[in-house]
Design a protein around this nucleic acid. Sequence first.
DNA 1: GCGACAG
DNA 2: ATCTTGTCGC
Length: 219
Amino acid sequence: MHTGDWPSTAEEALAVQEALRGRVELTDDLPELPPTVTGLDVAYDEDDGIAAAVVTLETAGLTVVEERTHRAKAVFPYEPGLFAFRELPPLLAALSDLEREPDVLVCDGHGLAHPRRFGLACHLGVLTGRPAFGVGKTRFVGTHEPLGPARGASVPLVDAGEEVGAVLRTRDGVKPVYVSAGHRIGLAHACRLTLALTPRYRLPETTRRADRLSRAALR
DNA sequence: GCGACAG
DNA sequence: ATCTTGTCGC
């Protein structure tokens, strides 16, 4: 659980981002292939009901090690750029129920590829202290050159002259994903991990598992 | 002023 | 995010 107070307005949320953005660590102590990878996702119903799910997989083999869910009511509206304030509460609750400390968090959304360089992956990383990165399904900020058609192809995602992430093709001829560092992990490393998590589908196995679990938990 | 806009 | 049928392709 968190401290007790949570932003209720966009102004407060922006102030929190401003206060925490400096705590992002652009370091990388993570082993090339950490023992486990933890995916997170949130599902919604038509009445502000939300279900968060976290799934920890063994990196080699992608088998489930542990999974947890948490149901709640949304406490913040969806707003581009402030997305974390909506999903973080239930995600943190589910994470705190894990028995094994996550080695790295794979988020369904962006990290540094955010208007203020503090997307969900950065926020989650800073609050938990764990390494974290984001894998977004669609672009939020930045532009990029055309991308090759084969799995593994990638080009820098640039916003305001800064390299904020990478556009990465995880499957041949399939729409790419947007990878960005969140906390305590480098972009190249995050891309390599993303490829290790996509042996068959476009999205990381962590995200797919968490997505299924969160939907199931909603009922 | 006109779009764009993570999930 | 979620609402939803058929359809094209491997």
